[in-house]
Structures are given as structure tokens and as C-alpha cells.
């Protein structure tokens, strides 16, 4: 099979994924329009949107992983992606799905008046274990280039997060802004992380 036939197939997969993303976002908008007033906090709505962004990214990665030429081009290597690169991308997609579940679950459990919050917390604890294991395994296997990119991303998220927190916390302490909960801050941090990852990814591709 030639590259000329594979690349359009890969592009079709990405296009189909984009259609799914638009449908998912429209669904989220309809859901929030219909049930948004039932949510406990504004951050619950943001959590649902962030979870959908994670799910959409996971879907795109999963779709691309079936087209080695398209995936090879996206990760910036010569020729089609290897089995190891496909595995890495699928693992990343699975972590994004797990993150989406971890963000939506506390909102859903609260919304459904889950009878035992301690048992509901087991889902979060499981995700924390998965995240620690994934990060440890990926970082241990990474080479210096990957580690440098991870550090760079971490630096930008830390800088932006700290600056925003300083600005807001001071305003809150002075009574100029309403109090935020740890859940609000977590959701905003996840949103910031995803936006930063997307922005830096675009910037690297354009460079």
C-alpha cells in the first residue's frame, strides 16, 4: 500500500473524529442547557467540558493510531509510525479517557446523590494510582528530548498557574473575589494544562 493512499485515509479518520468532537460538544451544550441549573457549582460544568475535551483528544489519538503514515507525520518522524509509537499513543489515549472519567465521576456521583461518598471516592483513588504508574513508567522510559519537553510544559503550567493563583488568592483574601474550592481550582488547572498542551503542540509544529 502506498503512502499516497494511506495519508488521505488517515486524514479521513481525523475528519471523522472532528465530526464526532463537534457532535460531542453540541451534546454537551444541550446537556448543560437542559440540566446546567441542576449542577452544584459552575466548576461542574467546566469539568464536563474538560472531560469532553479529553475524550475528544483520546478519540483522535485512537483513530490516528490505526493509520501509521498519518501518525508518523503527526509525531514528526520519517515514514510510518512503529508498533512501539502506536502503543505509546494508545496508552496516552487511555490515560485521557481515565482523566475524563475522573473529572466527570465526582460530578455525576453528587448529581445522582450517590449514597456512599467514600465508595464513590474509590474511582478517584484508582485514577490517582493509574496516573502515578503511567507517569512513572513513561518518564522512566523517556529519553532526554521527551523529558525536556515534559519539563518545558511543566514550567509553563507552573508559571501560568502560580501567577493566576497569586492574582486570585490575593483578591479573595481582600474580599474582592468569591471563595474558590479545591475542586474549582483542580478543574481550572486541568483546563489550563490542556490548553497549554494544545498551544505548545501547535507552536512546536509551526517552529
Amino acid at each position: 500500500m502506498s503512502t499516497q493512499t494511506d495519508v488521505p485515509r488517515g486524514n479521513n479518520a481525523v475528519m471523522i473524529t472532528r465530526v464526532f468532537i463537534v457532535i460531542a460538544l453540541l451534546g454537551a451544550a444541550l446537556f448543560l442547557g437542559a440540566y446546567g441549573t441542576h449542577l452544584a457549582r459552575w466548576s461542574d460544568a467546566v469539568a464536563i467540558v474538560v472531560a469532553l475535551m479529553c475524550a475528544a483528544s483520546a478519540l483522535r489519538l485512537a483513530a490516528e493510531s490505526f493509520y501509521p503514515d498519518a501518525l508518523g507525520a503527526r509525531i514528526g518522524v520519517e515514514g510510518p509510525s512503529t508498533a512501539r509509537e502506536v502503543r505509546q499513543v494508545r496508552l496516552q489515549a487511555m490515560l485521557l479517557v481515565a482523566l475524563a472519567i475522573a473529572l466527570v465521576w465526582p460530578v455525576t456521583a453528587t448529581w445522582l446523590h450517590w449514597p456512599a461518598p467514600a465508595w464513590a471516592y474509590v474511582v478517584t483513588a484508582a485514577f490517582i494510582l493509574v496516573r502515578i504508574t503511567y507517569t512513572w513508567v513513561v518518564f522512566a522510559r523517556a529519553d532526554e528530548f521527551s523529558r525536556q519537553r515534559t519539563r518545558q510544559m511543566g514550567w509553563w503550567i507552573f508559571f501560568a498557574g502560580q501567577t493566576a493563583l497569586l492574582a486570585y488568592a490575593s483578591a479573595e483574601r481582600l474580599g474582592l473575589a468569591p471563595t474558590l474550592t479545591a475542586w474549582d481550582i483542580l478543574v481550572l488547572m486541568q483546563f489550563l494544562s490542556i490548553m497549554m498542551a494544545a498551544f505548545l503542540g501547535k507552536a512546536r509544529t509551526a517552529a
Partner: peptide
């Protein structure tokens, strides 16, 4: 070199300067 293909590509295209050991 025991690195990823992305690393080789990044070095070749000047997007990444390798460490001294590399």
C-alpha cells in the same frame, strides 16, 4: 543512540540541541 525517532528528527531539524553526553 538509544533515543526515540522524534529525538533524532528534532535534532536534525534544529528544534532540539542534544546534551553533551548525547
Amino acid at each position: 543512540l538509544e533515543v526515540s525517532r522524534q529525538s533524532v528528527n528534532a535534532i536534525e531539524t534544529g528544534k532540539y540541541d542534544p546534551s553533551l553526553p548525547l
